[in-house]
Design a protein around this nucleic acid. Structure first.
Lengths: 159, 159
DNA sequence: TGTATAATAGTCAAAAATAGTCAGACGGGA
DNA sequence: TCCCGTCTGACTATTTTTGACTATTATACA
């Protein structure tokens, strides 16, 4: 049921559980999963972005490689960088990345991550907005419904 | 005589007798019943609404899915009354009361309750607002900071 | 020492695989 | 007959997967 991309993502993350970086051959990995080479690039671009806390380096040519580095940071630095990243405006996707990252760093549980996402997804941001109370109603409704969804105990991995 | 919708409804409910949630492919189900894909959406909309005790989530694209979550009768009553109470506008105090209630009923943990409150308190509601992204930044900043506070493990008992 | 070749990786647009929306057709009961 | 719940089909939206083409680098060889 899991998409190919999800499997590849998990495979790489497993390699990163102990180490903070891993090096691999793009075409070997593609071969292993029986997919197009560019599929690997897709996974790297969508699942191992800087916003999600990873750096990717690579080299072409003979004995080339792809290196994936998990960014580690202490809480103070992380919080500062996230606040800066958020700034005064942020897209739904970027917000999702930040929340995912907090979850991967085990700062929040999956349920908490889902609640956070429910508070900031497009659906919660009712526009045009005319008052704080109206906005609050929209956000609150979203998080309350999410709380009920969580209570049904979702063990999947998506926010 | 509304045989088709009823059959699909029953089929899904049978899947939900043991589990509280089930995941399926819209087009596979439509194929199985030999009907239009949109028929499934009709069934979901008319038979698996919140009022009837269900929450529905889905994702498009490769390996997409439709997930149906069954909640208990008590939860339905509670959720309905909360949604009604929230309406289209709600004060900070009332919102807090609702969140506290969810916590007291053990639907959310203390950490989760705090995150929820962080998402809807006055500080998060930056007004006047000019865009969804600006609004999102404000709410997200608030919940991210709260996540760190939670992680820093506050042992107080107030939301 | 240059240069051709093989071995890598990257890019991008199109195709495939999903799901959602909505207006209108259809059909049975009040 | 008219209304209302069903059902369909065409069109849209989203996410993943692939393939053709490009770019880069190490190495072998002239």
């Amino acid at each position: 049921m899991a998409a190919l991309s999800d499997s590849i993502e998990q495979f790489i993350k497993d390699l990163l559980t102990d180490d903070t970086r891993v090096e691999l051959k793009r075409n070997e990995l593609a071969q292993y999963f029986g997919c197009a080479n560019s599929q690997i690039n897709y996974v790297l671009a969508t699942r191992f972005s800087v916003n999600r806390g990873y750096l990717v380096e690579s080299r072409r040519g003979g004995s080339g490689y792809v290196r994936i580095i998990r960014i580690t940071a202490n809480e103070v630095d992380l919080l500062k960088s996230l606040i800066e990243k958020i700034g005064s405006s942020i897209s739904e996707e970027e917000a999702k990345d930040i929340i995912l990252r907090l979850h991967e760093m085990k700062l929040v549980t999956l349920s908490e991550a889902r609640l956070m996402y429910a508070a900031v997804n497009d659906g919660a941001m009712s526009m045009p907005v005319c008052s704080k109370d109206a906005l609050r109603a929209s956000v609150l409704k979203n998080v309350v419904v999410q709380a009920f969804k969580n209570a049904g105990e979702g063990r999947e991995n998506a926010v």
